[in-house]
Design a protein around this nucleic acid. Sequence first.
DNA 1: GTAAGTTTGTGAAACATTTCACAATAGTTG
DNA 2: CAACTATTGTGAAATGTTTCACAAACTTAC
Lengths: 209, 209
Amino acid sequence: MEHHLISEKTVERLILYRRILLTIDPEKQKNIVSHQLALLTGVKSPQVRRDLMVIGYSGSPARGYDISSLIESIGHFIDAPVKQGIALAGVGNIGRAIIDYFKGRRPKLDISAIFDIDPEKINRVLHGCRCYHIDQMEAIIRAGKIHMGIITVPADSAQSVAEHMIRAGVTGILNYAPVKLVHPENIHVENRDITLVIEKVAYFSRQVR
Amino acid sequence: MEHHLISEKTVERLILYRRILLTIDPEKQKNIVSHQLALLTGVKSPQVRRDLMVIGYSGSPARGYDISSLIESIGHFIDAPVKQGIALAGVGNIGRAIIDYFKGRRPKLDISAIFDIDPEKINRVLHGCRCYHIDQMEAIIRAGKIHMGIITVPADSAQSVAEHMIRAGVTGILNYAPVKLVHPENIHVENRDITLVIEKVAYFSRQVR
DNA sequence: GTAAGTTTGTGAAACATTTCACAATAGTTG
DNA sequence: CAACTATTGTGAAATGTTTCACAAACTTAC
């Protein structure tokens, strides 16, 4: 399998498709047609068919897609072959919320190391994760062969944390700090600035009326 | 001003431009050229110029844009004319994190009412917001002329909460619950599923190497 | 006051993504 | 087993977004 030119949007939708498919009771329904999956996920049906085409999954005319094998095919494409560790830096409100929320949701992904600078937190187990001082981060990420990091530290330390992560081998960063991280272009950075998205929705809530 | 056809991406970038501009010390620097703003925000300079063109802001050749008037112009475009209230439903980890994080960040936006079903929380002031029972939500949203809602309740109640919000007059929803909300198409819904974005970044962290 | 050096604003090109529309195909019915 | 129905897979069209490239315009320096 030599995929590479798959767009971010397609990846997002594939993840969404799987999430919806997993909520369907396999006793009750074995197959699904593109139109129904489209309805459940809020996309158009040709889009669904195209996305599945991209991962080389084929359905059957007049019967649609086999749910369980489709889930498996998406997993083949999206999931790590072995369990993948994630490092999280910044055990404040947002960090804690993410740790708590994510714990156990995806079998192949695990927030396996968390970091902070608060002596109160260090060496304690918080929400099921042992918290280390951020000075140890590079070593621990390297030792754990971790390739993804989540940044939930304050804005002024985000860049430095990102640089440490990247130096230690991280290639994908999910950034909640309200700063534009500068980084090599082969590093995937996803920004989830909360203030920004609130402003955006506030704007559009006034446009529609 | 009769803008309407302005894309989501452009709105996001305008908000980003403003945030970056606000971090510049007005004593030190009065003007900025598209190239520099582009560098600070991680977009290309023609994109910056196009975005500013969309809101009808003009710079000066050879000197670029006047920072303070640009901030003001973006504000004209993006901000509510008067302070806009926001309702938040679901005072769990994520809800609390958002309330705490957002408090006081934007002068024209305020999380003015929060809702839950836990008797422990109701009628108490949490993070500076009075918490009400979700049964009162519709009345309070209506009375407060609130048009934006944030949903941080568990997946199984998200749809029902959304419907109540919409019935009460909400036209923009920021949804953190891992479900596709069904809604009239004139309602702006922004999904911020945490599990989904973690899976996405994990995927791309493995593609780049 | 004019020539040189930047930068803006924007039409047009390039690129990306979505949607259409329909041939091919599998299932179902009488 | 043939006719009918419904669905997939996918070229091609449509739409949306970004980038190029350059004329027009302002500033500065001499």
